[in-house]
Design a protein around this nucleic acid. Structure first.
Lengths: 293, 293
DNA sequence: AGCTAGTATCGGCAAAAGCGATATGTTTAG
DNA sequence: CTAAACATATCGCTTTTGCCGATACTAGCT
């Protein structure tokens, strides 16, 4: 019978690259990992690692088994989180961490419905970048995160998509780009781009460096201000730009080329340990059914 | 850390109704189960069973944990099956077990494509009732089952829906029902119904007893013959009835009332131990993409 | 009251998990 | 080519865990 320890040793070896490294990552002796893998191989009647070179290489059999092993460990982790949840009381305070690029206004209407159902809980709102929010969610506090979809969400988080936010390109009315129609991306490369730094990773298909000259800011409202003052063009959520557009300070860039589907999906995230709490189920249900971001 | 043994003890207790019964079902001593449950409760810091009465009752905490525990065991089972699969060679013979109500003609065209890709494998076809097919799938032989969707498919089987079969009500042209339009079910109750016995369980929404007088048969072609000879009305897959309708022996019952969506979903089933074999992936892919049942 | 079917606990055994030490193999840098 | 650095396998040993059987106790039924 495959034990959890064996599977952990197996997966850790693949992830760490060697038995020794796996032992370190699991805080066990190297001989323990070695023995686990050998036993696993005996149980499977198959070699899982090629041990010729310095680092063990997964065999085909190992590659076949790996996703199954990971699935068991994931499920096991989920069980552990559920067990922790058994000892929790309904929280007295709910914290919602919101990516800065997501309009708070639409969230607020949902919250009032939640409040009427759970009048005793107090609410707290935080703004942060999507990455920082993911980090926050690993704390003791039961935080609900609302962020732009990121590719790599840790396995201990539950998430679901609840909508999307439309982005467009904006420049100041006085900016040279404002008058002309760009037929392709190249037109943008001739002018300075204003870009969000905190989410400037490979995970987001947004926030791409297009122009060779870039100014960075770490939040959308600074970008907005920079754009208004004519410092460059900028990809902004429409709700951030709408006021400046109405007042005539900013214009949406008229584009000929495809808009690349500049719709950013919005996810609600929660630690598995808290996600089954009644109040959070209700919250997510409200977000899912009544929110049109 | 939750061990597989603890979880098995927990789930077995819920399913068997008592620690002792669980011990018997797992072929272990009763004290072992008792100890596992106690340890599980210590790990969770929560009572999982109410032990006041004769039989232990799941507490709320237990109810919360149960689905997670089952999920881990399911995943573990799947891993075990995958491990078994590592030692299998590509089969030299493929057996496809088909529910009698599913048209073979459409399957045959798929099979020829498979044959061209794997010319060396020999093929075998079996007809049986959906229930019998499910039993067959638990054998050593890697059998592919194609059956009407049933509610309770054992957890060791992989399945997916690949289409549906249309059913209609048929009677002989000479039958009294043939002339009149039934406005509701009651009209049917006045005449003998011809019904399939082998699938006459609670699992299928088809094969309902409607008339008080019923004749049974264990396959569709006997039912067809009985219907042709004017012995009653009958719910048949259209492809079974089509010839008799064309020759004028049988007519489709004109119904006023809703057709209850008499579309039976068709699933392809396979034991997890074999489902990852290349040849079966190809087979299922053919069924999924090219089959219009 | 007595029977039956259940649970908890104890002592003991065997298997398994873990550790550290050591022998040995593979790279890489000097 | 050699030595240093890093890797794996194996051995003996201790600790923990899984399991058993025996026993005491409890709930429910007749």
């Amino acid at each position: 019978m495959f034990s959890i320890e064996q599977l952990q040793a197996f997966v850790a070896t693949v992830e760490a690259g060697s038995f020794s490294a796996a032992a370190r990552s699991l805080s066990k002796a190297q001989s323990v990992i070695s023995q686990h893998i050998i036993n696993l191989e005996i149980d499977c009647n198959a070699t899982l690692f090629e041990r010729t070179g310095r680092y063990p290489q997964l065999t085909d059999a190992g590659k076949q088994l790996l996703p199954q092993a990971k699935a068991v460990l994931n499920q096991h982790q989920r069980l552990t989180n559920s067990a922790l949840a058994l000892n929790e009381k309904t929280p007295t305070e709910i914290t919602i961490a919101l990516d800065e690029g997501i309009p708070f206004k639409t969230i607020a209407s949902i919250i009032s419905k939640l409040q009427s159902k759970y009048p005793y809980v107090s609410l707290e709102f935080l703004s942060a970048s999507s990455h920082d929010i993911i980090d926050m969610l690993n704390s003791e506090k039961p935080i609900t995160g609302i962020i732009f979809s990121e590719l790599n969400i840790p396995s201990y988080l539950d998430y679901e998509c609840i909508g999307s936010v439309k982005f467009d390109l904006y420049v100041a009315k006085s900016h040279p780009l404002a008058g002309i129609r760009c037929e392709n991306m190249d037109g943008l490369r001739l002018h300075r781009q204003l870009l969000l730094r905190s989410r400037n990773t490979q995970t987001s298909s947004f926030q791409l460096k297009i122009s060779p000259e870039i100014w960075y800011a770490d939040n959308y409202f600074v970008l907005l201000e920079l754009a208004i003052q004519g410092n460059g063009w900028c990809l902004l959520p429409n709700h951030v730009a709408v006021d400046a557009v109405q007042s005539g300070e900013l214009v949406k860039l008229p584009l000929e080329f495809e808009e690349m589907g500049w719709l950013a999906n919005v996810d609600v995230l929660q630690h598995q340990q808290h996600s089954n709490q009644e109040v959070f189920k209700v919250l997510r249900n409200l977000l899912r059914n009544f929110l049109k971001i």
